[in-house]
């Protein structure tokens, strides 16, 4: 099972994601942004960081990278895609998940540990999370305030597209509407979230709750076995 992690210039959680997805049981593969080939990856992770420096707006340039075409095709075939932090911003800019991520309400970068409720356990991203469990993960971002026009928000909620919400006691770190921390696309094979599961994948780092999400992803992909185009393996 190969899991690809995209490396944009300015990605800085790519190595972390490669390490953690390996712990989750996948064979990690780095995917270069200029290369329009997934090299047999059945899971694609867009990692955190500051792709292209994020000088214009987070994620806005990365969506034009050659790799994004391959990821779009992969998603259209039902392949699994996870965008974390800056990766979520890129997915949102590319229209692969709904919503936009604005500057944090505090107008400051916010790094802190938060707690998440898992709204659904019947998705490929969360099916190993035990019922009733909340997740403890860190956030680290300047632009994580999730927003959506009212009508689209209603649609998102109606189709149960919200996968994670910030919960007490730490609460909402960035002012996101409806405490939304992570969402699904309509087909439910693409997920974007602001907190970092890859940073909470080992007990020694303070939490291994994130590993449940990554393992769900790997096991779901194995179960559905989507052969990717151009798979060399």
């Amino acid at each position: 099972m190969k899991a690809g992690v995209v490396v944009f210039p300015g990605s800085n959680c790519d190595r972390d994601a490669l390490h953690a997805i390996g712990l989750a049981g996948a064979e990690p593969v780095a995917l270069w942004h200029e290369d329009a080939d997934l090299h047999g990856a059945e899971i694609v992770i867009l990692p955190g960081g500051f792709a292209y420096g994020d000088y214009l707006r987070a994620g806005v340039l990365a969506r034009f990278s050659p790799i994004m075409g391959a990821i779009r095709d992969h998603a259209a075939r039902g392949g699994l895609v996870l965008g974390i932090c800056n990766g979520f911003q890129v997915l949102a800019e590319a229209g692969l998940v709904p919503g936009a991520l604005l500057r944090n309400a505090s107008m400051r970068f916010e790094h802190r540990w938060v707690r998440l409720t898992v709204e659904r356990r019947d998705t490929p991203f969360t099916n190993l999370v035990p019922p009733g469990m909340t997740l403890r993960l860190p956030v680290a971002h300047g632009e994580g305030c999730f927003t959506l026009p009212d009508r689209e928000m209603a649609t998102l909620e109606a189709r149960s597209g919200v996968l994670f919400r910030y919960a007490q006691p730490e609460g909402n770190p960035n002012g996101s509407e409806r405490d939304i921390a992570g969402v699904l696309n309509a087909r439910e094979n693409v997920c974007g979230l602001m907190p970092h599961p890859e940073r909470a994948s080992e007990e020694i780092l303070g939490s291994d709750d994130g590993l449940l999400l990554l393992r769900s992803l790997v096991e779901s992909a194995a179960a559905s076995r989507q052969p990717a185009v151009g798979a060399a393996a």
Binding site: N12, C13, R15, D16, H19, A20, G48, R108, F109, E110, H111, R112, P138, A140, H196, E198, R199, S201, E202, I204, L205, G206
Partner: peptide
């Protein structure tokens, strides 16, 4: 310290507020 990313790199065992930082 909340304005600083302290966990990127996934090595931070103890960060600010601990007297000394511990990095595995």
């Amino acid at each position: 310290t909340t304005q600083y990313d302290a966990t990127v790199g996934t090595d931070t065992v103890a960060g600010s507020g601990s007297g000394a930082a511990v990095l595995r």
